[in-house]
């Protein structure tokens, strides 16, 4: 019994070693500072496929990079005409979904692996789990659910969700470069970057990295004071309003 367990354990531990390669990646910038002239940035992810000890490299690799931003809970609402005017009649809550989601690949997703593998590994926008609250239950609905489609479309319009099969380039058969767009309206916080390497329809290696979007300089100061000292911040803004109002009045006084 114990022997059998030991064998199973040995197999389990040996399983990753069955892969012949590992991924080494690096981001061009691990911290994006949002300052007063920030209008968005493109991060570049560099990486190579390295042979593992005694492993042999395959010929045709496919790469999937999934970058996801801090989670948030949103409500998608649908309007319909009621008595001549447009009213929100229905809504769904998307619970703890990424505020930002970019999925980039080097080829169309359908060519990377079979649908079952893609679904299990959440590759591609259609396979990414976006949890909805339906009544008292939490579940992700079918891909063509109208609320899900509307949610992704609206996020896409804000440049916060996106999928591209051209943003990853293999410079050689093992060295690649991926470009991750971070728009100006991206939320501050930690962004996870998940990198998956596929070969012959299966995932052969996976690694993760991350970057931070933080406010810096006066932006950071304003945000921190507004959050931590709301009342003082409000009084300061009000005093500023009065001061500017008085200054203008004094400057333009003719009598």
């Amino acid at each position: 019994m114990i022997a059998r367990l030991a064998i199973a354990l040995a197999f389990a531990l040996a399983a990753p070693a069955a892969h012949a390669e590992r991924l080494v990646v690096s981001l061009s910038n691990a911290r994006i500072a949002v300052t007063s002239n920030y209008v968005g940035e493109n991060l570049v992810l560099f990486g190579t496929v390295q042979p593992d000890a005694g492993g042999q490299l395959k010929s045709d690799y496919a790469l999937v990079v999934t970058a996801s931003g801090p989670s948030e809970t949103l409500r998608t609402r649908r309007k319909a005409r009621v008595l001549g005017i447009f009213v929100n009649v229905d809504s769904r809550e998307f619970v703890r979904v990424p505020s930002y989601l970019t999925i980039i690949t080097d080829r169309p997703i359908g060519q990377i692996a079979g649908p079952e593998v893609l679904r299990r590994l959440q590759v591609g926008m259609d396979n990414y789990i976006l949890t909805q609250r339906v009544g008292a239950d939490f579940a992700d609905t079918v891909t063509d659910d109208p609320f899900r489609k509307a949610f992704i479309r609206l996020k896409d319009q804000q440049h916060l969700y996106g999928q591209s099969d051209m943003a990853v380039t293999f410079l050689t058969s093992t060295v690649f470069r991926a470009s991750i767009p971070v728009p100006a309206n991206a939320a501050t916080g930690r962004y996870d970057v998940d990198v998956k390497l596929f070969a012959q329809g299966g995932m052969v290696a996976r690694t993760a990295t991350a970057f931070d979007v933080t406010k810096a300089g006066i932006e950071q100061y304003v945000v921190e004071s507004s959050q931590d000292h709301g009342l003082l911040y409000g009084l300061a803004t009000m005093s500023m309003a009065l001061a500017i109002g008085w200054l203008a009045s004094a400057a333009f006084r003719r009598d």
Partner: peptide, 26 residues
């Protein structure tokens, strides 16, 4: 209202407010 919004919802954008104020008073 400014003080109340700032103290409860933390939604007053001081940078936006200053730009609007300068334009507004002139």
């Amino acid at each position: 209202a400014t003080v109340m919004h700032a103290a409860t919802n933390h939604l007053v954008d001081a940078i936006l407010a200053v730009i609007l104020m300068v334009g507004g008073v002139i």
